[in-house]
Design a protein around this nucleic acid. Sequence first.
RNA 1: GUGCCUGUAGCUCAGCUGGAUAGAGUAUUGCCCUCCGAAGGCAAAGGUCUGGGGUUCGAAUCCCCACAGGCACGCCA
Length: 558
Amino acid sequence: MQSMTEELKKQLDAVIREIATENEYKLPETFIVKLERPRQAGHGDWATNIAMQLAKPFGLNPRELAEKIIEKMPTGKVVEKIEVAGPGFMNFTLVSDWIAETIKMVTEKNENYGRVNQGEGRKIQVEFVSANPTGPLHMGHGRGAAVGDITASILDYAGWNVEREFYINDAGLQMELLGKSAQSRYFEAIGKTEEAPFPEDGYHGEYLIEIAGKFVEKYGTSLADKPLEDTLSIFSKETATIVLEMIKKDLSDFGVNFDVWFSEKSLYDNNCVEPAMTALKERDYAYEQDGALWFKSTLFGDDKDRVLIRQNGVPTYFTSDVAYLKNKYDRKFEKLIYVWGADHHGYVPRIKSVNKAFGYKDDALDVLLIQMVNLLRDGKPVQMSKRAGTIIMLREIVDEVGVDATRFFFVMRRCDSTLDFDLELAKKATSENPVFYVQYAHARICSIYRELEKNGIGIPDVTELDVASISEASEIALIKAISKFPEEIAKAAEEYAPHRIAYYATELAEAFHAFYNSQRILGTEENVMKSRILLMQAAKITLKNVLTVLGVSAPEKM
RNA sequence: GUGCCUGUAGCUCAGCUGGAUAGAGUAUUGCCCUCCGAAGGCAAAGGUCUGGGGUUCGAAUCCCCACAGGCACGCCA
């Protein structure tokens, strides 16, 4: 369909320019032909409102202009029929060749169907999750992980050279606190609880009790012989390493694999911080006052300037982020996506300011803010409290409802609206549950293949397709849904909107189920059957690819 | 107090870079398997797009003002 669509755009563009020149109408500089998918089935394959937009500059009424355009449009090769509708829409029906063309293309491209070249191989980084290595991932991280991972997949499909990166927040006070918590658990494990009291804001999770056990295994009681201060760094370092491994496991079990694990601490170890500060000073965006180093964020509309290096010489978290941002650009990324929890939204202007201060392009950096998740069970909220230690872990959800449902549910909604995640719904194997609905469509096709095989019928070659036998409304609707996939990828990539793909998956499955229920494959005339098998194969390929983008499995049987 | 997000069918949400009769799922009601997976399909019904102004040929969509809910406003990370 794409080639015909492009041709149609060219024809329209040429005709409109011709009309403008002939009549000395002034074409707006921003003029570009845009086609859209009409909502209504009766409104053809493509529609445009261009006549309405040009009516004013041309001094005509929209319908009149539309008629003028139609008069000059060549028909037969690409367009079968053009109609003027409503206030001045033009609805185009393509010649039916596009159906065969699409089925052929989908079949040939197979697992590459849906890929577009919007990114042109440019480097883009998606940084997400980026939790402190102080404990296993909880549910909130899960949404960020799913959104980040799937956004990255979409960008990959859209032709970008994508890197997934996890920023390990391993510099700063919380590492010490983690060490102290582990240390205390260690003393507890060897029966000397009083010698190392649990820190006030320590990490209460049970995983630290387990980790303490590992310290006992490795060191026996030897760590208790030295003063607490002397062993603290051992506890901090080794605990962080173990916890990071837990996080990595949580993520890989969730189908999320990072290309780069970037340590905040490494920014300091590799001397990335000072050059970044110097760069800011040189550009006159940083200054010293009261013994501290400040960033002039007020120049960018902030209420007050922000501290980079404290009076005591210790850099703030913000400093790391400044150095990190520069480091990202030094690695030649053309675009940077940050996926953050919405509770960090206040921080967005600040990082954008730094971006400007360094002189980078404003639109090279985008922050995706992920709103909160409300966990429900049978419609009722699941009580959670950080203090009481009843935080729900990502692993618990995955164990209960599975990776597929968890991933799908997490990207089902727009990022900027809060998400209700109902555990019971996610487990249901009915149409109430969109994951199953989509997977079922795929499994159903596989089942039909098995049935065909039993009857000694294989999958025909694409050349055996008989377009004339594809004419039922449900067939046309299905092939249309299939043909939309590349556009959906392009749109989702442009808007960083993974939920679009989840919606599209449902739409595609719906078109298939409707087709399946109204048309038979087995027992029809040979050319009809062959054509339907080929149509179904295109549907199967597309379903599989959509699910792959979402990181959800496409089962052959359920 | 300031800033950000949200407000669309009973419920959960798409649609938001302006376009045709505002769409899904679910719940409700009725139909469809001697037939490839009924884990499905078809149909009915369901709306003051929170409210009020404005912009224009046209507004759920853009602007302003209210109202309601959520989240942030550290030399914490």
